[in-house]
Design a protein around this nucleic acid. Sequence first.
DNA 1: CACAATCTTATTGCGCGCAATTTGCTTAAG
DNA 2: CTTAAGCAAATTGCGCGCAATAAGATTGTG
Lengths: 152, 152
Amino acid sequence: MFDNGAIKTEAMLCFNLYAASLAMTRFYKPFLEPLGLTYPQYLVLLSLNQEDKQGVSKLSNELQLDTGTLSPLLKRMETTKLVKRLRQADDERRVLVELTELGREIAAKAACIPQCIAQSLGPNFEEIEPSRLLLAKLRKVLAKTVPPVLAK
Amino acid sequence: MFDNGAIKTEAMLCFNLYAASLAMTRFYKPFLEPLGLTYPQYLVLLSLNQEDKQGVSKLSNELQLDTGTLSPLLKRMETTKLVKRLRQADDERRVLVELTELGREIAAKAACIPQCIAQSLGPNFEEIEPSRLLLAKLRKVLAKTVPPVLAK
DNA sequence: CACAATCTTATTGCGCGCAATTTGCTTAAG
DNA sequence: CTTAAGCAAATTGCGCGCAATAAGATTGTG
């Protein structure tokens, strides 16, 4: 109707990114719930299935989540028997996170979810998937660009 | 080195979306903090600046956040004097959210942030911005696709 | 009018994200 | 050996997201 000159959230990259990410997490939920997983737990499981016995800081670096997020998350995954946490013998500061047998089973079941998602979205998925490369680039650029308010 | 056949998070659309969204929110933080805003509060402010006196459910629909998120968020924005909440006279169920004078001032200051971000990212931004349309599409497709596990 | 069904918002509870601080361990320097 | 500096993980505190539930207002039906 009228346009008061204000920015439309719809027209902003950041809002569409934010809303799309939340929508994706919601979409995964019915797939993950039967497996007793939350979305970030699912990512941890995948990362460990790809490379087991990572330290907390390795996972932190891999998934770009800090220890304030990961520590309690891993504790919960330990109580649900998905992982074990063990102190590294030669450096007791480090904690290695290892998949249990159950963890590997759940990871195996979870492995097909991305294809399920893709299939659910049908031809739309083919159209959208190429944004993955742009998002990977965006994520890296954002991570390494110095916040300019602080620069100098 | 070795590839055990497991999925790489790096290769997944959903992970890149998730990580990029978090990275974007982090990137916004130093711009928003001086204004006393969090990222979702910033979105609410923009939405109200675009159209004032929206009901809670209108905002919910606009930003795709539910009332469990918005109710306490709006309450916090009321205590920081950014908005006022008033019951609609002819339907007391409804709550209209209105920008205060301060709210409009902060919204005005916040309006230039996207350009600041774009400028900070330099030529990378031009490369990445086109993903906005794909993300908008993704968000809509995800919202209206019936979760297939539940379908039938 | 009575009263059930519906609608709108608020509340509760839990799991993130993340800044700031703390704890325990390791290494470096005197 | 001692002590300071640095590192890895955990804890604390707060603000989301969101499911589930509740509370209050309105509408529809008899």
